[in-house]
């Protein structure tokens, strides 16, 4: 089959769409690693939880509470799911992760991996692993937009734009504002920053909660596109970790740019050489590690 420019453009656009999810998830991972030094393997599970909060809120919560008319719609879910899941993240940080800060990275990794397995296992007990469709896509986002080279579903375009906005807002918050400066200083020299009267432990807790909330937000955005499944996070997290490694552990801009770029590369590979589509990310990771062990945007 001949490869037309149009085919490449359409697949790149789809890839960019996937890339936006990679970017948002790897961004949360980068924030958590950059500021807390925790390799958060539970990130995929929090993404999955976000989608489930949206699904349960829409279809099950009302009947459970004896109010069949109560439905948390998509827009509310975008707000509520990150809050609920973020709070759970804070709880986990306060009760579990906090005890590991003095130890090797490995312990944090093992703990969060365990948390992810528990959450996945819990949901696998009650929900179809093949995925349950999320029926709450807002009507205003039904239909397609003509982009000139292709018809693109309105909802996917919406998800793409929103994720980009969230990514760059987060980057701005951490790299360009005073709050961000305090955060970065607090992780580098906690004692000194505390001497200025800043409550560093609280700051760290909130940062973890924020990173987790980002994952949940991505989960809600993903729910109408992909089916909601207990394993949706586990499927994605491996690619997302590759993104973080390629971008440079802890680099926020690195995570965003790499996420988007890899999504597109993956999409284009689907046209050029389909069998390589699922491995191309890891090929790039291996190459980057050989040439720049700290990642494309990493310092050192």
């Amino acid at each position: 089959m001949a490869i037309s420019a149009n085919a490449i453009l359409t697949q790149a656009m789809l890839g960019l769409n996937n890339g936006a999810f990679y970017a948002m998830l790897s961004l949360g991972l980068a924030v958590i690693f950059g500021l807390l030094n925790i390799v958060n393997f539970a990130h995929g599970a929090f993404y999955m939880l976000g989608a489930f909060v949206a699904l349960i809120g829409l279809t099950q919560l009302g009947p459970w509470l004896g109010m069949p008319d109560l439905q948390i719609n998509f827009w509310w879910a975008l707000l509520i799911a990150p809050l609920v899941v973020g709070l759970l993240g804070i709880l986990i940080e306060r009760t579990l992760l906090r005890r590991l800060y003095g130890l090797d990275h490995l312990y944090g990794l093992l703990l969060t991996f365990g948390v992810a397995l528990v959450l996945q296992g819990f949901f696998t007990n009650f929900y179809n692993t093949a995925g349950t469709p999320y029926p709450g896509k807002p009507e205003i986002l039904d239909g397609v937009v003509n982009l000139g080279f292709m018809y693109f579903p309105k909802y996917r375009l919406f998800a793409l734009v929103v994720s980009l906005l969230v990514c760059f807002a987060t980057w701005y918050l951490i790299e360009r504002t005073k709050l961000g400066a305090i955060l970065r200083a607090g992780t580098e020299k906690p004692k000194l920053v505390e001497a200025f009267g800043v409550n560093v432990p609280l700051l760290i807790t909130l940062t973890y909660g924020f990173g987790v909330a980002l994952a949940a937000f991505a989960g809600v955005l993903a729910a109408p596109i992909y089916a909601v499944s207990p394993l949706m996070g586990a499927d994605l997290i491996i690619v997302v970790f590759a993104v973080v490694v390629i971008g440079g552990m802890g680099s926020i801009m690195g995570a965003i740019v790499t996420g988007l770029a890899l999504g597109m590369i993956e999409g284009v590979t689907k046209v050029v050489y389909p069998p390589a589509a699922s491995t191309v990310v890891f090929l790039i990771m291996a190459l980057v590690l050989l040439v720049r062990p700290a990642g494309l945007f990493g310092k050192e």
Binding site: Q11, L14, I225, M232, G267
Partner: peptide
Amino acid sequence: NDFSSYLLQ
């Protein structure tokens, strides 16, 4: 789960 790229091909 995601058939979009196959469908577009």
